[in-house]
Simulated scan of single mutants.
Amino acid sequence: MTGGGLSDLGRIDSPRSTTPSEDGPHAILTLDPVFDALAHPERRFFLYALHAGPERTLEELAQQLTDWREERQDGDAGRNAEQTYLSLYHTHVPKLEACDVVELDDDTGVVTHGSNADKALAALAGAVQGIEQFENDAIRSPGEKMPET
């Protein structure tokens, strides 16, 4: 995958979200599936990989995650694509399907976006932007004034 990294997710066009004052607390509760989907790092990387091409096979996605893990030299770097595939198939994809974030065609192995995919990707992009802003704020000198947004 090419691109500038997770910050590429900030380019996702998402519909305007509702605020609690517009729809009450129930609007916030509709985000529960999104936060469930993003709770595990493997699912966040999976969604990022799927974002690159919204129709990819689970095998392709497992290989992509394995390649990234090797590049980052994470603690699970010894895990091969088959192990990643099994973890995705038995644990992470069913969770994402239950949250309507992805759909897996068991006959073809193709994974596509579900009805909550845009919300999950937008939340992931927002989290990345928030972290980048936090890091930028943390390196400012104590007397430096924050830019107005």
Rank of each mutant, 00 (worst) to 15 (best):
T91I: 13
I131P: 00
T2M: 06
D74P: 00
H40I: 03
G3Q: 01
L65M: 11
T84W: 14
P33R: 06
A120F: 04
A120H: 03
E42L: 13
T112I: 07
V110Q: 15
E82V: 11
P147L: 15
A81K: 00
G126H: 12
E82Y: 08
C99E: 07
L104Q: 08
A62Y: 09
E71T: 05
D105V: 15
A98I: 06
Q83N: 11
F134I: 06
Q129R: 06
A123F: 10
R69A: 10
A122G: 04
L47K: 00
A37Y: 06
G126T: 03
G78N: 13
H40K: 10
Q129C: 06
M146S: 07
P142Y: 01
F134C: 13
L61A: 13
Q73D: 15
Y85F: 09
Q73N: 15
K145T: 09
G3Y: 04
V102I: 07
T2V: 10
V93A: 11
L50K: 05
H40G: 04
A98V: 04
Q129M: 07
A127G: 12
K95G: 07
M146V: 07
A117D: 08
G4S: 12
Q63F: 15
E59K: 07
G114P: 01
G10M: 05
G4Y: 07
V111S: 06
N136H: 13
D100P: 01
P94S: 13
G5E: 09
E55R: 14
L88D: 03
G109C: 14
L47T: 01
C99I: 00
L31W: 12
A127V: 08
L38S: 04
T112N: 10
Q63I: 12
T112R: 12
F46K: 05
G75T: 13
A122F: 04
F35I: 06
G143C: 01
L96A: 11
G4P: 00
T66W: 01
V102D: 07
A120Y: 05
A98M: 06
E22Q: 04
M146Q: 12
V101I: 09
R43M: 00
Q64P: 01
G143K: 03
E59Q: 08
A49S: 13
E135S: 14
R140M: 11
E103T: 03
D67E: 11
G3D: 02
S87M: 14
S115Y: 03
L88K: 05
G10F: 05
E82S: 08
E70P: 00
L124I: 02
I28R: 01
M146W: 11
T57N: 02
I131N: 04
S141F: 12
E60A: 11
L9N: 02
E60H: 13
Q133W: 10
G3I: 03
